[in-house]
Write a protein that binds this DNA or RNA. Structure first.
Length: 576
RNA sequence: CGGGGCAUGGCGCAGUCUGGUAGCGCAUCUGCUUUGGGAGCAGGAGGUCGGCGGUUCAAAUCCGUCUGCCCCGACCA
């Protein structure tokens, strides 16, 4: 490809509204353009990246025996009513009507459609197992699209759905996909971790996420190098602690006026104590009562998944508004505490171990200090309510956990019979009896992978694409192209040889000064660069530089093709 | 959904307070020079100042309203 034939507009400065580095660089390098909030167009360079990702995904899915299909983006409400998700899915599901006033939605995922296909196409156990997949645009009406393509409303996803006769079959299909995913992310040259996950709105039991490690990631994942444990923080239990460790009371209970104190941070400043010495009281909606109190240490975060599993707590978890708190407790949030609070309450196990702590007094602008369980207030029901933090012991038994940020790029689920049951997807078994099929579903965020790759690999000059997904393998930069016959001739020869060797080559034949060509080449992140100038040609050599380091090598023209082919090809994976 | 901010040429910004010719850098077009890390000179094109309404002799600027976009929050207690 000649750069003179490719309209490439790069920016020196990032648009002001781009926050994360991948978003800024994608805009600056002419990979995507924003159309509206959460909606992005992919320009030629970007599409090449997507195609490369998709190609790897396709190859590995096919290798794993999955069958490619293509399903509509617009789906009838009827199907979603059958599964029950027309009601359950919430506002992320964009609903629309056609001219006949029939209800449809924009597909955020395709369990319903694929289950419909399966129940009509699959009749006999002898047709199983089957795994269908597609690479397709999804739409989710995100409450807050952000980080460019990373949390967009419209995005490209590879989704796959397996159908098996029983649980054993599903388990096997799941493991096949797990291996395929590992191969895919290995080939994409990303640094990732497989973590235990919560299956969320899609339902089902066993579920794991593939996370690319990056500080800008939206998820917190906890892992221990020592024992290999890794899980989304949402799912990690905090190890039980003995109540006997509670210190004996030393202070007297006191009620102090705390004007203007609203938060734990305020309280700590006012009383000169640490958050660990405070107790916070959160009110959430209950099933039996209007409110349930959840009590945590001041420095801990509530874990919504753990909380909504408690008896009497409404699912999904809903925090009460300030007005609802007033109605339920007779005091504004900010002065809440367990003493004299006439509501069902749960106490986090870590918060059960503190003594002489401070908390709200259920009286406007007042707090207690020197509070102790049992002595001043009966100990409420104790449960695990909080997120783990760095330093908590690993549930795997191997030392402390580390909490890091990750970008979720893949997710695999064992769905079981949730959809097949609701939608009557059965096959006949060997005894001629109908059996409900067991399903798995497996997603990869294709567009998100592109962003994650940039988050993981960039520098001050721009993107550094992994070989596997770069829009081109190599960029050839001729110096003073139209002044030098030798340079022109060498450029043609080099590009021709590299292309013949199976490489995708971008030739910067634009009539520009070298400086701006170098800058663009660095920005758009082509992994390998060749510079062709009179200087090197005198010695029959071409200058080579990797985007990843600063060293320059001079390569003999004749050995160029092998030299680059060795470097630019993605590392091969062993067949399995 | 709650809070905050922004909206002036493709991108980044000034001008708004104090109403009076719409400006700068980058990008873009033409010509000449230049050609190893974002060139120089000269000339040019491109803007309903987000929309609507109002005040005024006069509105990018003041007032009202709507829309769009971004950030933070949705774990304040």
């Amino acid at each position: 490809m000649r750069l003179s034939q490719l309209p490439l507009t790069t920016f020196r400065e990032a648009p002001a509204d781009a926050e994360v580095i991948s978003h800024q660089l994608m805009l600056r390098a002419g990979i995507v353009r924003r159309l509206a909030s959460g909606l992005y167009s992919w320009l030629p360079l970007g599409v090449r990246v997507l195609h490369r990702i998709e190609r790897i995904v396709r190859e590995e899915m096919n290798r794993a025996g999955a069958l490619e299909v293509s399903m509509p983006g617009v789906q009838p409400a009827e199907l979603w009513r059958e599964s029950g998700r027309w009601e359950d899915f919430g506002p992320e599901l964009l609903r629309l009507q056609d001219r006949h006033k029939r209800a449809f939605c924009l597909g955020p995922t395709h369990e319903e459609v694929i289950t419909d296909i399966a129940r009509t196409e699959l009749k006999s156990y002898r047709q199983l197992p089957v795994n269908y997949y597609q690479i397709q645009t999804k739409f989710r009406d995100e409450i807050r699209p952000r980080f460019g393509v990373m949390r967009a409303r419209e995005f490209v996803m590879k989704d796959a759905y397996s159908f098996d006769l029983d649980e054993e079959g599903l388990e096997e299909a799941y493991q096949v996909m797990r291996r395929a995913y590992s191969r895919i992310f290995d080939r994409l040259q990303l640094t990732y971790r497989i973590v235990q996950a919560d299956s969320g709105a899609i339902g089902g039991s066993q579920s794991e996420e593939f996370h690319v490690l990056a500080d800008s990631g939206e998820d917190a994942i906890a892992f221990s190098e020592a024992d290999g444990f890794a899980a989304n923080v949402e799912t990690v239990p905090v190890a039980p602690v003995g109540e006997s460790n509670r210190p004996a009371p030393r202070q007297d209970l006191r009620c102090v006026a705390t004007p203007g104190v609203r938060s734990i941070a305020d309280l700590c400043e006012f009383l000169d104590v640490t958050p660990q010495q405070c107790l916070k009281t959160l009110l959430v909606a209950g099933t039996e009562s209007p409110a349930v109190a959840l009590l945590l240490r001041g420095d801990h975060e509530l874990n919504a998944h753990k909380a909504q599993a408690l008896d009497g707590v409404a699912t999904p978890l809903r925090m009460l508004s300030a007005a609802q708190v007033e109605a339920a407790a007779g005091v504004a949030p900010g002065s809440l505490g367990p003493l004299g609070l006439e509501l069902p309450a749960f106490l986090d196990q870590s918060a059960a171990l503190i003594g002489d702590f401070s908390c709200g007094a259920n009286r406007a602008e007042h707090h207690y200090t020197g509070v102790n369980w049992d002595r001043d207030v009966p100990l409420p029901a104790v449960a695990d309510l909080r997120n783990v933090t760095s330093g908590d012991p690993s549930p795997g038994g191997g030392g402390p956990l580390t909490v890091a940020r990750g970008i979720e790029v893949g997710h695999i689920f064992q769905l079981g019979t949730k959809y097949s049951e609701a939608m009557g997807a059965t096959v006949l078994d060997s005894g001629g009896r109908p059996r409900t099929m067991h399903m798995g579903c497996y997603g990869i965020g294709v567009t998100r992978v592109a962003a994650a790759a940039i988050e993981q690999s960039n520098d001050a000059r721009g993107i550094i694409w992994p070989n596997a997904i770069a829009p081109f393998d190599v960029i050839v930069i001729p110096i003073a192209l139209d002044k030098s016959y030798r340079v022109r001739e060498a450029t043609e020869k080099v590009a021709g040889r590299l292309e013949a060797a199976g490489l995708e080559v971008l030739v910067d034949d634009r009539d520009q000064r070298p400086g701006s060509k170098f800058a663009d080449a660095d920005l758009i992140g082509i992994p390998h660069r060749l510079v062709i100038g009179e200087r090197g040609l005198d010695r029959g050599e071409i200058e080579y530089k990797s985007r990843r380091d600063d060293a320059i090598e001079m390569i003999a023209l004749d050995s160029l093709a092998e030299f680059l082919a060795a470097r630019a090809k993605s590392p091969a994976l062993p067949d399995s």
